[in-house]
Design a protein around this nucleic acid. Sequence first.
DNA 1: TTCCTATTGACAACCGTTGTCAATAGTGAT
DNA 2: ATCACTATTGACAACGGTTGTCAATAGGAA
Lengths: 124, 124
Amino acid sequence: MERRNTRQLEAIRSYAEHSKSHPTAEDVYREIVKTIPDISLRTVYRNLNKLSEEGILRKIQVPNGPDRFDSTLEPHQHILCTECGEFIDVFMNNEERLLEEIKDLCGYEITGIDVVYRGRCPKH
Amino acid sequence: MERRNTRQLEAIRSYAEHSKSHPTAEDVYREIVKTIPDISLRTVYRNLNKLSEEGILRKIQVPNGPDRFDSTLEPHQHILCTECGEFIDVFMNNEERLLEEIKDLCGYEITGIDVVYRGRCPKH
DNA sequence: TTCCTATTGACAACCGTTGTCAATAGTGAT
DNA sequence: ATCACTATTGACAACGGTTGTCAATAGGAA
């Protein structure tokens, strides 16, 4: 399974790798299409998925919203503003006084936390 | 805005409220349709959403999967087995030795944690 | 019973994402 | 350069889960 460096992959990699805004596939597409007008959204999806499988990006599956792609690989969480859609990083250490810490750090008032761990159950 | 007690709402409430299995709307529909054959999936969605807005159920938005409805209102998290789809509760207190705790508690080996807090940003 | 309107069921549409497949374009060998 | 091979692409359609729409139905107070 040979690996090929296409214009499309390179453009997507360099954009997503340097982006700090947690872009969605749509976001990436709207940017890349300016320089590669005939690129397809399908290809953006394919390459973003490939890059996240390779560990170059991290795919963030946002409940009730499009996936976002994150170039920051260090473990951290995210906050989504339910009013304006702003999506920011949170780096936290201890969970105890987390909510107050978050409010101190960035002014967000948390209205919901939905955590879903993923894993393999004892049978697998 | 008067409130009406329909057969459909009552059936959905009593099933979901007593269920311990985090049913999806489909799950609820497949059960209720046995006793109310002409109920529609649309109505199941509507009433599950209504019940979770009223705080009677908790809606869990699972990334890349259908929403689940939880009758356990105490704060807790969930684990989804990526192999068999089993979906279980986790009650945790401190985050520090969380992963080892989880493994001790229920044998799950965590392969991913995607946390998205929701809130209002300082502008709102 | 009557009337009002909340709720329903049928249906279509939505969004984000992936499947399919023939056409295209990297890449390594000649 | 040219070739042949096949990974990748772009088109298009389809998917799954959920919600919008709207005329028909059925609670519930008078």
